[in-house]
């Protein structure tokens, strides 16, 4: 009954003077394996790091980038903070909603996209911008956003 994330976690733990410090990375690992942080995933992290599971959950829900429900195959993380907003990010939200039928915080019926509204993602000079999974896409327009998203199945 070997844990799913045990091996990778060993290297991560070695970076820190205390096991507990590996919690954030461990949650990322678990999220990658399970797709989201289910109770099972958090329980596994708890056992691996010997951090009580309620504590794990407290930490996991504090940070915005951990997912607490099943997400789509692709996660669109679109910034709507001021620099992006004044350059039309809100219109892009509408386009995504209309084109793919996905509400902010939700997932499209076909499971292709989830949409997450982000605070600033550090691309204000090339606003509006988004991350799809781990790829940056900047200088978005009402036209190019669809082309970009079409690249994700």
């Amino acid at each position: 009954m070997k844990s799913q994330i045990a091996d990778e976690l060993e290297c991560v733990k070695a970076k820190y003077p205390a096991e507990r410090a590996a919690l954030l990375p461990a949650l990322y690992l678990a999220q990658r394996k399970y797709g989201w942080l289910s109770a099972e995933a958090m329980d596994e992290v708890s056992r691996e790091l010997r951090v009580p599971k309620a504590t794990v959950r407290g930490v996991a829900t504090f940070y915005a980038m951990y997912r607490h429900k099943q997400v789509g195959r692709n996660v669109i993380q679109l910034c709507t903070n001021v620099s992006c907003m004044i350059l039309g990010a809100e219109r892009l939200v509408d386009i995504i909603r209309e084109k793919y039928g996905v509400e902010p915080g939700g997932t499209s019926a076909d499971g292709r996209f989830s949409l997450v509204i982000m605070e600033c993602i550090g691309a204000c000079g090339t606003a509006p911008a988004m991350l799809v999974n781990t790829d940056f896409h900047e200088s978005l327009t009402q036209e190019n956003i669809v082309t970009i998203l079409e690249g994700y199945r």
């Binding site: 009580p52 309620a54 829900t61």
Partner: peptide
């Protein structure tokens, strides 16, 4: 030290 509850979200 039971650590059974936590403040979740933020």
């Amino acid at each position: 030290g039971a650590s059974a509850i936590s403040m979740i979200n933020r």
